[in-house]
């Protein structure tokens, strides 16, 4: 594998690091090269689900200082385009990877899971009773029964606790996947994410009921 600079035709050092990634700038003319599109590759990070937020932020700031379009306004148009492209990918990558759920969905998608069809229609069996009670309370509130408000409040607290529990479980599963990168682990993570999405929808519904009644 080799790469040539778009500007001067000179070679772009390969590998630039231990992982064999190309350098961002040409060795000879220092012009910006087309960016990598994979978030982990772009940030020079190993593809892991458990990541250190502080380290990610440090990389984000350092790369912003190198790649932001403001720094390229006196450069040729093509380099300006690369800077715009690279900055967009940097910001997308940071936004995605700093949020554990978005990060997990990103990896799942790369591993061939269909994220768009994330199942939220089927009620997880252990939540059946909860959902039934919630629907009752919302209906009562709509009919003007103010006592239902307290019920909704306590339901919301229960949902928040469940969500926090799921987040704890996800943390462990992330570390487990990082260790061996086994597909079975991803299936488990996917299941947790579906359950989490279902619960956050329930929280949103209680908030909505509070506001609109």
């Amino acid at each position: 594998m080799s790469a040539n600079c778009w500007n001067c035709g000179g070679s772009v050092s390969l590998p630039a690091d231990a992982a064999g990634r190309a350098s961002r700038f040409c060795d000879a003319c220092k012009s910006l090269q087309p960016p990598a599109r994979d978030y982990y590759e772009f940030l020079d990070m190993p593809r892991q689900l458990a990541i250190d937020g502080k380290d990610l932020e440090k990389r984000f700031y350092a790369l912003s200082r190198q790649l932001h379009p403001d720094l390229f306004s006196r450069k040729p148009p093509r380099e300006q385009e690369y800077a715009l492209d690279a900055s967009a990918i940097l910001n997308d990558a940071y936004r995605t990877l700093k949020d554990p759920v978005a990060r997990a969905l990103y990896v799942l998608k790369q591993e061939g899971y269909n994220i768009a069809e994330q199942g939220t229609k089927d009620v997880p069996p252990e939540l059946l009773e909860e959902v039934f009670d919630l629907n009752m309370a919302i209906e009562e509130l709509r009919e003007g029964d103010e006592d239902a408000r307290a019920q909704l409040e306590s339901a919301r607290h229960r949902f928040e606790r469940m969500r926090d529990e799921i987040d704890g479980t996800l943390q462990c599963q992330f570390a487990e996947w990082d260790a061996g990168q086994e597909r079975a682990k991803l299936d488990e993570i996917r299941g947790q994410l579906n359950r989490r999405k279902y619960i956050t929808n329930l929280i949103a519904r209680t908030d909505e009921a509070h506001v609109s009644n």
């Binding site: 379009p69 715009l84 900055s87 967009a88 990918i89 910001n91 997308d92």
Partner: peptide
């Protein structure tokens, strides 16, 4: 509130 440039 996504930092710009941003893309999808």
């Amino acid at each position: 509130n996504a930092t710009i440039p941003a893309s999808a």
